[in-house]
């Protein structure tokens, strides 16, 4: 590790952190080793302990930036610049949040974000459920080919279609509107794929039974297939929500004023207007993050189930 390229003030602290982290990882590896070669009981305990230790280190690595963001939002600007950095706010300045909310027009931006995100989530769910159902339950010409085409759109990065989409949006007169923010994201190959997999898990006999009960495809989809695919739908909704909420580049180029800008753009403008008060930007980031965090808390079970949906059947 070349520490000499880092700012001199930071170097000792940074070295310390690296040393401690490495020591923990080495300890975990050692425990794993003991786990393989010790007595059965000791082995089990050591394995378990080393696993938790590893998870602990990993979660610290993942959560540290979020923690530092929260801490920095409560410090004064000169405290943030201090080296070594402060890891705990001794005199938290809660007023920063009010400043961020009012000077950054976060209310407006958040509302825009929610309008756009909600429309995208609802749209994605409707199109994905319909397309997934068709691929799972209907027979039509070129079904396989069309499905492969759907899948192949997953391989194309967003940036590739960026400028064509922009031209389309501008030529349709949608520039600087909710429509421009929403329409390009209403349907995804991933969504159709995920819902198809979920619907394939619905037993064919249920379709037969429903047919004898006189249910057409639309009623079977809404009354039977969709309720059974709820976990997948919840997962897809969450994925779509996070993807839409965190968008930056597209909203940046298709909007020109506060009326339609989303919160991610708003944060950028906030940081630009508060160059000397970087704590305000940090507070803004935390405010923008809270809705996501709440959603995550509510839906974490579905999210995990969705992530493993393709891997484990049942």
């Amino acid at each position: 590790m070349r520490t000499d390229s880092l700012p001199a003030a930071l170097a000792p602290g940074f070295t310390k952190v690296v040393v401690v982290a490495s020591a923990i990882v080495v300890l975990a590896a050692l425990l794993q080793f003991v786990g393989r070669h010790g007595t059965p009981l000791g082995r089990r305990r050591a394995t378990k302990f080393s696993r938790y230790l590893l998870l602990l280190v990993l979660s610290v690595i993942v959560l540290f930036p979020i923690y530092i963001t929260i801490v920095n939002s409560l410090l004064a600007p000169d405290q943030i610049a201090q080296r070594p950095p402060l890891l705990f706010p001794t005199h938290p300045r809660w007023s920063t949040y009010a400043t961020a909310w009012t000077t950054g027009h976060l209310g407006r931006y958040l509302m825009n974000s929610f309008i756009v995100t909600t429309l995208i989530v609802v749209g994605t769910l409707v199109t994905s459920i319909a397309a997934g159902y068709a691929f799972a339950f209907l027979e039509f010409p070129f079904k396989r080919t069309i499905f492969v085409v759907f899948l192949s759109t997953m391989m194309v990065p967003l940036e590739v279609t960026f400028f064509t989409n922009l031209q389309t949006v501008v030529s349709l007169g949608w520039y600087n509107s909710y429509v421009a923010l929403v329409v390009p994201f209403l349907a995804t190959g991933f969504g159709a794929f995920l819902m198809r997999q979920a619907f394939l898990g619905v037993p064919g006999e249920l379709r037969d039974a429903a047919e004898i009960d006189g249910l057409g495809h639309l009623r079977f989809m809404t009354r039977i297939a969709v309720p059974l695919a709820r976990p997948a739908i919840a997962a897809l909704g969450l994925f779509a929500f996070f993807a839409a909420f965190n968008q930056y580049l597209w909203p940046l180029i298709v909007t020109k004023n506060d009326q339609y800008r989303t919160v991610q753009i708003g944060l950028k403008y906030l940081s630009r207007s508060q160059l000397n008060n970087i704590n305000v930007t940090f507070a803004g980031i935390v405010l923008a993050f809270i809705p996501l965090f709440v959603l995550l808390l509510i839906f974490q079970k579905q999210l995990i189930r969705g992530l493993t949906a393709g891997a484990v059947k049942g």
Binding site: P203, E205, L206, D208, A209, I212, I224
Partner: peptide, 12 residues
């Protein structure tokens, strides 16, 4: 009316 091998009950 039909009765199926796997019962085909609506699970939800």
């Amino acid at each position: 009316a039909m009765v199926f091998q796997n019962y085909a009950l609506y699970p939800h």
